Every structure is written in C-alpha cells, then in structure tokens.
Simulated assay, not measured.
Amino acid sequence: MAIVKDNILMQLVRGSLGKQITIYERNGQIIMAKKRGPSKKKPTQKQLEARHKMTIASMRAQIMLEDPQIKAYYQSLAGPGQNAYNIAVKDAYRSPEVQNIRLEKEEVAVTAQNEFRVAEVEVKIIDAEGVITESGRAFLAWNGVDWRYKATSLPAGGKVIVIVKSLPGIQTVKELQLT
C-alpha cells in the first residue's frame, strides 16, 4: 500500500488498473494498493456466522437511517472517514449488556450499558408458579447508567426478568432469582 502525495495525475484517477492495482481515496488521502481478489479458501463456520450477523446489522442500519433524527444522532457520533451508516451498523452489530441487577427495597435497579445508548429497559416480575405478576418499563436514573423500576411486590421464590433494548432493537435478557 502506498499513499500518494502531490501527484497531479493521481489526483484524478480512481478505480482499478487491470488486475494489479487499485487506487482509492480515504480520509482525504489517495491510496494505491495491490488489487485483492476473492479468497480461494472455503469460509469457516465462524466466518459464515459473522457474515450473517453483519448482513442483519446492515439491514437494521438501513431501516434505522430512514428516521432523520436517528440518522442525525449517528452522524454526530461519526469520526473522520465515517458516516452515519458506519455507526448504525456498529450499533446494530453489538448487543447491549446487563451489568448488574439489584433489589433495593421494592425497587429493581438495573445497570445496563451499550456502546452508544440503551433505548429501553423492561422488567417482568414472575412468581414461584411462573405467572407474570407485573411488568413495565424502567426509567433512567439521574446517573445516566442505572434504570429503575418500582415494583409493587417481589414474591419469594420468583424471579425478575430484565430485557434491555438498544436503539436498533437488539435485546439482551437477564434473570435474577428471588429468595
């Protein structure tokens, strides 16, 4: 790979020269590199899974960018050489993380994190027989990381199920057994 500087001829050239060289621009720099072709190796199972996950992330990103507000949000996070689509794909590729679930009196406190932003946290309270006694959305606390849900009761032997959603709609589910 070579970075071309101050060459008037290369300022106007982009694309491939035969099957040997590719010339393109990235971050305002003109780059010449050996032309790559398709791999002759059969993809591994992990590679196929990653490709499938990337295809889904790309589709989610395209749908999300139809909303002008979301597109503006992602564009504001883009760095040099990036655009809103790159950031949206990155967000759609990764799942949000539930770091901690705590019970504080009759309140469920959830510490959730995503690289960009957690869109919503839903809490379900299930009794010992497996019946949902209550459910609802948690609200973001003053610290910007914890989400709080005011429960009417926390039945012994039951469990709390927390569903964290990212902006692209990717969910992470975590349970906490009640004693």
Rank of each mutant, 00 (worst) to 15 (best):
Q29K: 15
G157V: 04
S39T: 13
H52N: 13
P96G: 04
R94Y: 14
L178H: 04
R36M: 09
I23S: 04
T133Q: 12
M10W: 06
A57T: 04
G169C: 05
A50D: 11
V98T: 12
I70E: 07
I70W: 10
E97V: 14
M1R: 11
P168N: 04
T55S: 14
G28V: 02
S39R: 12
A128G: 03
L17F: 15
V173C: 05
S16T: 14
R94Q: 13
N7L: 12
V164T: 13
N114A: 14
Q82H: 03
M64T: 00
N27Q: 09
I8H: 08
K41T: 10
G136F: 10
I8V: 05
G169D: 06
E97I: 15
E134Y: 02
Q75G: 03
E25Q: 11
V123W: 05
G169Y: 11
A72W: 02
Q99V: 08
D6K: 15
V160W: 09
K19M: 07
G28M: 02
Q177E: 08
A2T: 14
V110L: 08
Q171G: 03
R137V: 06
D91S: 09
Q177I: 07
S39P: 01
E25D: 06
A128R: 09
L140G: 10
D91P: 06
K124V: 03
R14G: 06
A84C: 05
D127L: 01
Q177T: 07
Q45K: 12
E25I: 06
S153G: 05
K35V: 07
I163V: 14
K5C: 03
I125T: 00
A141H: 14
K42P: 07
G37E: 07
E175P: 06
Q171M: 10
S39E: 05
V4W: 04
T179R: 07
L167E: 12
V145E: 14
F116N: 08
E106W: 04
R60I: 01
A78K: 07
T172G: 03
V121L: 02
I31N: 01
I23T: 05
S39I: 01
Q113I: 14
S153W: 03
P96H: 06
V145Y: 11
K46C: 00
E66P: 00
R60S: 02
N7M: 11
R102M: 14
N86L: 00
S135Q: 14
L176T: 03
N7S: 15
T44K: 03
